[in-house]
């Protein structure tokens, strides 16, 4: 049975407001029951409101927590991104620095520091059991000062670049070429017999001698002198290099454009 509460309420109000029922025990009981009922309704109302506001508070708190979480997450992502960029920049700078510290900027060949590093590695890792050993060749461009004086430093630089490229094209399959300083270059040939080294350096010497650099309708031709030394059991890097240097000096004094093997 469905009760219509507003009808019932109206009916009760009418009974309670009828004066002749006032003294009837049923009316008194009804009045008390009515008051208890009203109180219960009020209580229920207060409870509902309280519960609603708790719920609301929790929702707000959750929202503010999630907002704070989002904010921190966003900040973290941004910090990471910026930090990554700084690291990437540093890494690039490091690579550039490493490159500039090891590469000769003019010829783009290994510089003296780099070629020394390679030589030191070649000396340390040589295999004395093999019949072919480590050979170095010191190269000097003949009359380079005259090229500078006659054609100017710019042409001198061009000669260094062109010859560096020409020599490296021949050498790079067999070993390394680096700029030793000024117009001097150093060749490292690991695992080369003296004969093989002489043949290769002869090819380099010949290549340079027959090369003509044309700049502004001027033709510049040069030659190189080469001092070769082969690693010996008692050698250090210094003695190996100084024998090549002595041989180069001899090649210069013997009229240039030639090879001498240091003894």
């Amino acid at each position: 049975m469905k009760i219509n509460f507003s009808e019932l309420e109206k009916e009760i109000q009418t009974i309670l407001n009828t004066p002749q029922y006032n003294d009837h025990p049923a009316s008194r009981a009804l009045r008390q029951l009515w008051e208890v009922n009203q109180e219960q309704w009020n209580r229920m109302d207060r409870l509902t409101r309280l519960s609603d506001s708790y719920q609301d508070m929790m929702m707000r708190r959750e929202k503010s927590l999630s907002e704070r979480f989002d904010k921190h997450l966003r900040q973290l992502e941004k910090i990471t991104r910026i930090s990554d960029r700084y690291q990437r920049n540093l890494r690039q700078l490091n690579l550039e620095l490493e490159r500039t510290s090891l590469i000769d900027p003019l010829t783009e060949l290994p510089n003296r520091r780099f070629i020394m590093k390679r030589l030191s590695y070649a000396v340390e890792h040589r295999d004395d059991a093999l019949s072919e050993g480590l050979v170095v060749a010191m190269i000097d461009i003949d009359y380079f000062k005259k090229v500078n004086d006659q054609f100017g430093h710019q042409v001198g630089d061009d000669v260094l670049v062109s010859l560096g490229k020409l020599m490296n094209d021949i050498i790079h399959h067999y070993g390394s070429l680096g700029r030793w300083g000024g117009e001097e270059f150093l060749v490292i040939l690991p695992q080369h017999s003296q004969e093989k080294a002489i043949a290769l350096m002869e090819k380099v010497r010949d290549g340079v001698a027959s090369y003509h650099l044309s700049i502004d309708h001027k033709s510049v031709s040069t030659s190189i002198s080469v001092g070769i030394s082969c690693f010996r059991a008692e050698d250090s890097m210094d003695t190996l290099l100084s024998r090549a240097d002595d041989a180069l000096y001899l090649a210069k004094s013997k009229g240039r454009n030639c090879l001498i093997v240091g003894s």
């Binding site: 900040q75 941004k78 910090i79 910026i82 930090s83 700084y86 540093l90």
Partner: peptide
Amino acid sequence: LYLNTSSIKVMMDIFD
């Protein structure tokens, strides 16, 4: 010029 990670955090807090 260069900022390490904790310095980045400090700057971001200030900007926020």
